[in-house]
Design a protein around this nucleic acid. Structure first.
Lengths: 304, 304
DNA sequence: GCCACGGATGAAACTTACTTTCAGTAGGCG
DNA sequence: CGCCTACTGAAAGTAAGTTTCATCCGTGGC
């Protein structure tokens, strides 16, 4: 896969918009202008002719065509139709919540809550929609068969990595997470064929994580990347790429939507692994639950 | 335009197919052939070019255009788009995701993903719905005014606590999180009036967290509990109670839904606090983002 | 029986939309 | 500084969509 990766828009119809916003950063400036128009109002874009859209994006028709190809379509007519279909599906009432955007300065808390929840839920849903089950399957397979599992992540993604590690550990898998780059590098150096390294980076550009994955790969381990941007650098050092679909645009939300999306993916993988070995998993979980029971209090009130 | 009935397709978008089959009998034979094709498989028709469709209907392009006009469209492209939209709408609403329940043993990954995402998204939405803006307001107020902010949480909730701490810290608030109970207790003992302690426990029964909150409260700090169970022990030591609405029933999902719900609440509080002091917040966020920039890589491709 | 009429239809001319090619330009790199 | 690469839009080329118009065919009048 040399030049144009031609990221498959995969699934029959779901998530074209999501797909596009994921690809957005990897597009050229002119194409980005087109992409932004399309994402902002798919229905409207579907109504426009190619010339019209090109003008609106202050570029040429040629660029629009390039954009179509970049997002995996054959040409403009196909894009148009898919866009129309997408737009029709998302019935969503155009209500007060500020979709994707920033919170308006004057917003009251109720409004803020509605907006955030909406965007967060969307991120989760859209991530699931565009997740490729085939890739998940391979990753689950690899995790299930791995001798050792290393999970890497820095900053916010570090929490997710840590969460993943803990989950795997709880069902009896040998998993590690390192908050520190140097330790992580050391660990990666000790991986080998049959082991698996999972790197989490929202932007896909976190050099620390990329470096560690690279190291792991060089040692023969299977590498997996979890990122929001399917064409970011981290994907170049990964055997399997899983993507989230958070369209976080602004500073506001402290990147929570992306976090939730990542956690969802992690959860899917986890359940996938767990489902593969019910008995063993269940036993391990019960044992670990028992272990913390002494730290629970309460007059009868607690859950399983 | 003497003849052309030009029956308006009126309805913003709904029922084009119905509309067409309604006036099918009034169409000329050649147009009927076209209409039948369209009604039989709208999605397929939308994919075809006008020439292609004409051939399939054993007629000429001109007739197809006439057909478009007959059913109230301006031309073929418009019909095409409307058809695509219709077709998209009339598929797959109720599918096989297993609501609320456990994952069935034989489930394939695609099913698992759909189920998890559905439940996760639900947890987020429902949590937001039942969140009391008034209570949030008070908590936001308290955080904004606090001299010091302690966030407590153990196990899975510890991640959330840590996340919250990090968020607050990033916008320039003095916030702490302690993974260790003893340290936490020590810290709580140093709190006083004007400080705030936030305890996170999904079950509301984690003795470690309750204990620490209790301590903080005794010292005069404002206490906040975040739990899924509004009548659990932790609520007894809290001035303000915020609840999540995860209905996790089974062992399966590693408690991710509850985690997401908690994170959503934390996010709302965070944004609430941030919104209160835009300037200060923005400046702090920019500074922190700048700080990690050196750890980002990328051949030209990066995001805004 | 013949002819005028009108609606229906497709061939072909025509217009517009879409696609490709190509050359100019700007930015990165040795 | 100059080569190289990637991005871009102008223009040429092709395909799709639309209009025009001649033909066909059935009908009804003379």
């Amino acid at each position: 896969m040399a030049k144009s990766p031609k990221i498959s828009a995969s699934h029959g119809s779901g998530g074209l918009i999501v797909h596009i916003s994921g690809l957005l950063p990897s597009l050229s400036p002119a194409e980005q202008r087109v992409a932004r128009l399309v994402v902002a109002d798919p229905a409207d874009a579907a109504r426009r002719t190619i010339t019209d859209l090109a003008t609106a994006a202050e570029t040429s028709e040629a660029t629009v065509i390039r954009f179509c190809r970049s997002v995996g379509m054959d040409g403009y007519p196909q894009l148009r139709i898919r866009l129309a279909a997408e737009a029709a599906r998302r019935i969503e009432p155009p209500d007060a919540r500020v979709v994707g955007g920033d919170i308006p300065p004057g917003a009251d808390l109720a409004q803020i809550i509605a907006t955030i929840a909406f965007n967060d839920a969307r991120a989760v849903e859209e991530t699931a929609e565009q997740l490729d089950p085939a890739v998940c399957e391979q990753v689950v397979e690899a995790i299930g068969a791995a001798g050792r599992i290393d999970v890497y992540g820095a900053g916010a993604s570090g929490f997710v990595a840590s969460d993943f590690q803990q989950k795997l550990h709880r069902i009896g898998r040998t998993a590690f997470y390192f908050p520190d780059v140097h330790t992580a590098l050391t660990s990666a150096a000790l991986l080998g064929r049959g082991d698996i390294a999972i790197g989490i980076s929202h932007t896909g550009t976190t050099s620390d994580v990329i470096e560690v994955l690279e190291q792991a790969r060089a040692r023969g381990a299977t590498t997996v990347a979890l990122t929001n941007f399917p064409r970011s650098p981290i994907t170049e050092v990964a055997d399997h790429v899983l993507t989230t679909a958070a369209r976080e645009t602004t500073y506001r939300s402290g990147a929570t939507a992306s976090r939730l999306a990542q956690l969802t993916v992690v959860d899917c993988l986890f359940v996938g692994v767990a489902a593969r070995s019910r008995a063993r998993t269940k036993k391990a979980l019960e044992a670990t639950a028992e272990a913390v029971r002494a730290h629970r209090v309460g007059p009868g009130r607690r859950r399983a």
